[in-house]
Amino acid sequence: MNALEIKNLTKSFDDFKLDNLNLTLPGGCIMGLIGENGAGKSTVIKLILDIIHKDGGSITILGKNNEENINITKEDVGVVLDEVGIPECLNTEQVGKIMRYTFKNWNDKEYDKIIKKLSLPKNKPFGEFSRGMKMKLGIAIAMSHNSKLLLLDEATNGLDPVVRDEVIDMFIDYTRDENHSILISSHIVSDLEKICDYIAFLHKGKLLLCEEKDRLLSEYCMIHYSIDQADRPDDKYIKFKKISPYGIEAVIKRNMVPHGMSVSPVSIEELFVFMVKGDGE
């Protein structure tokens, strides 16, 4: 079963439009939603949860339409929003008690374990937490009620590299269960590159690409050549290119590289930057 199916999703604001988005997240997989600030990542996550209402299209979460009894579906969905909205006066212990009476499947032991693992203080008010600590608490809540799907909006932002690594390991562990899936949005592409099975690029409300990560990395490569180079590839095979005084950098399908031309692997981050800034399709 697919964890998430989004078809023809649209939402218009005064200055922004999410345009006809189609996404499918298979069960047991991690999908990275990559986009610059304002690309529409948070909007997508809020639309999935019906926090904001869509203008058109359909969303299915864990096989259920998100317009029918979404409150029941939310029992199985762990969410971290880019701003964890816990009241400032509450401490982690009080938050645990509140969530115990909120989720039917709340697991106190798991919550305490994660709180301890992430070194969160028990009695410090949430308002005195750093951004990283706030995100950690959001992650602890999202992972303590036996959720089947995690929706994480910029959840690793603000974490120091050591904790980020630890949290990413927690996400990987989480998806060892084939019923568990994650949709994670971020503009820190290196994090997503480590853990994601699928990558979706969002730019100005439009989905530029949604592909299996390994396929993406094996299918495309980077080439460098000068403007007047004779054995340059035909422009029609170039996926994205960037022209600078030092020559041309281009992303191309591996099987379209002219014979003898040296290639280098392309990273997800490079692909993303090329797509947004380069002369892409």
């Binding site: 949860l49 409150n71 029941i72 939310k74 929003l81 909205g85 009241p87 400032e88 989720f103 929706l151």
Partner: peptide, 21 residues
């Protein structure tokens, strides 16, 4: 007012509560 300040009013939308509740 405090719910709005802390963004709880948005976060509560991620929890399994009906709006009526």
């Amino acid at each position: 007012g405090y719910d709005e300040k802390s963004k709880w009013n948005e976060y509560v939308g991620t929890l399994p509560y009906k709006k009526t509740i």
